[in-house]
């Protein structure tokens, strides 16, 4: 059999697919990373419910726990380590200080191509439809 042409064609397609991220990424400066903006309201408050590094890692877990706690147990109060109490609410508590979803939440989520399904149910109070 002489299938060299077919084999080489297949190899070229394979190599092109493997290298496609390099072709598409060439010359881009997307390695800079996102720059989420802390809003003025949040800056005035000074402190979130956890430390910044903890929030970066844990915010989705906390939101999940809050949802389960509110929906299943009707338990709506979150107490921080230093005794402060917060209403468990994404739209009212989180977005109250972080009133800039576009510059805060979306910056990192978009950069990492994460599509959280918070907004399937919740709305951003600041967002005019």
């Amino acid at each position: 059999m002489n299938d060299k042409i077919k084999i080489i064609a297949g190899l070229i397609i394979f190599v092109a697919i493997c290298l496609s991220p390099f072709f598409m990424g060439l010359g881009s400066d997307s390695n800079k990373g996102p720059d989420p903006v802390i809003s003025e309201t949040a800056k005035k408050k000074g402190k979130c419910i956890l430390e910044k590094t903890e929030m970066a890692k844990q915010h989705m877990v906390i939101l999940d726990q809050w949802r389960n706690s509110v929906v299943r147990d009707a338990q709506r109060v979150y107490t921080t380590k230093d005794g402060k109490r917060f209403d468990m609410s994404l739209s009212n508590t989180c977005l109250d200080c972080h009133d800039n979803k576009k510059e805060f939440c979306d910056r990192c989520h978009d950069y990492a191509s994460v599509t959280p399904y918070c907004w399937d149910c919740h709305i951003n109070p600041k967002e005019v439809k």
Binding site: F22, G25, G27, S28, D29, N31
Partner: peptide, 10 residues
């Protein structure tokens, strides 16, 4: 940032 840095040679 690391992975995009690799593919963009930047």
């Amino acid at each position: 940032q690391i992975t995009l840095g690799i593919v963009s040679f930047n």
